[in-house]
Simulated assay, not measured.
Amino acid sequence: MNLTVDQIDILQELVNIGVGRAAGVLNEMIGSPICLRIPYIKLLSPPELRPELKKRFNGDLLSTVRLNFSGAFSGTAELIFPTESASTLVEVLTDEVVGTPDLDSVKIGTLLEVGNIVLNGVMGSLSNMLAQHLEYSLPTYVEGMVDRLLMSKELDANASVFLAHTRFTIEQLQIAGDIILIFKVGSFDAMLKAIELAFESDDERDSGCPERFRYS
């Protein structure tokens, strides 16, 4: 499936709004400036996901937080970091240092909290801005190489995979990861239809962007 320029622009804007709100929550949590940015997004087919992740992460051990969503559209949202970057993120957020006996449990708990905030921010942005109801499961944590992560879930060949490269900037540290939204068959089309409906009035089309998508 090929997205139009307008669809790409709106999807990127919606994701950016979501991560912006998540950054605000994280700022309050840690009392330190944190910036989340989405440099680009990409739509993939399920067979393209494995080579894409292998190319991006180059055989790194990965830390993944997963959140299932259902409702107007359904699927799985994931926040993926190389485990080394995830540990760095946890150190910055918690002041725990490498070698601390309880670091693993602290890391999992912290990443679950961060993942829940970021993924809920993104999915909440899609839900609210497109006026579509969604429900969420509790987040889960998985660690492993790309092949193990993909083996741990069934991926329908006709599903749609939406990948958003994510960049965390905290105290001059650059931590990169990915947000991956895997939509069940028909769900991504339902979301695109909701976007189309948001542009259905002539006034909104003339303005180039629906009023409810604008923010300062």
Rank of each mutant, 00 (worst) to 15 (best):
Q7S: 11
D9C: 08
I10G: 01
I10Y: 05
E13Q: 10
E13I: 12
V15E: 06
N16I: 12
G18R: 05
V19I: 14
V19N: 03
R21N: 13
N27K: 09
E28A: 14
M29D: 01
M29W: 13
G31W: 00
G31V: 10
S32P: 06
C35W: 00
C35H: 07
L36G: 14
L36Q: 04
R37A: 14
P39H: 08
P39V: 13
P39G: 10
Y40N: 15
S45T: 12
P46Y: 02
P47W: 00
E48A: 15
K54L: 02
F57P: 08
F57Q: 05
G59P: 04
L61S: 11
S63A: 15
T64W: 00
F69Q: 00
F69C: 06
A72Y: 00
G75W: 01
T76F: 08
T76R: 12
A77F: 08
E78H: 08
L79Y: 07
L79A: 12
I80C: 09
F81N: 13
F81E: 15
F81P: 15
P82A: 11
T83Q: 13
S85R: 13
A86F: 00
S87Q: 11
T88H: 06
V90W: 05
V90H: 09
E91D: 08
E96L: 14
G99N: 02
P101I: 05
P101A: 06
P101R: 10
L103G: 03
D104I: 08
S105N: 14
K107G: 05
T110R: 07
T110N: 07
L112I: 12
E113L: 01
I117H: 11
V118K: 12
V118P: 15
L119A: 14
L119I: 10
G121E: 02
M123E: 13
S125R: 04
M129T: 12
A131G: 02
E135L: 05
Y136L: 15
S137Q: 04
L138M: 12
L138V: 15
T140C: 03
Y141L: 04
G144K: 07
L149M: 02
M151I: 06
S152G: 10
S160L: 04
A164H: 09
A164M: 08
T166M: 14
I175R: 11
I175Q: 13
A176L: 10
G177S: 09
G177I: 08
I180P: 11
L181R: 02
K184V: 07
K184A: 10
V185Y: 04
G186E: 02
D189N: 12
D189R: 01
M191R: 03
I195H: 07
E196W: 07
E196I: 04
L197D: 02
A198F: 04
S201Q: 09
S201Y: 05
S201I: 00
E204L: 05
S207K: 13
G208F: 00
R214G: 03
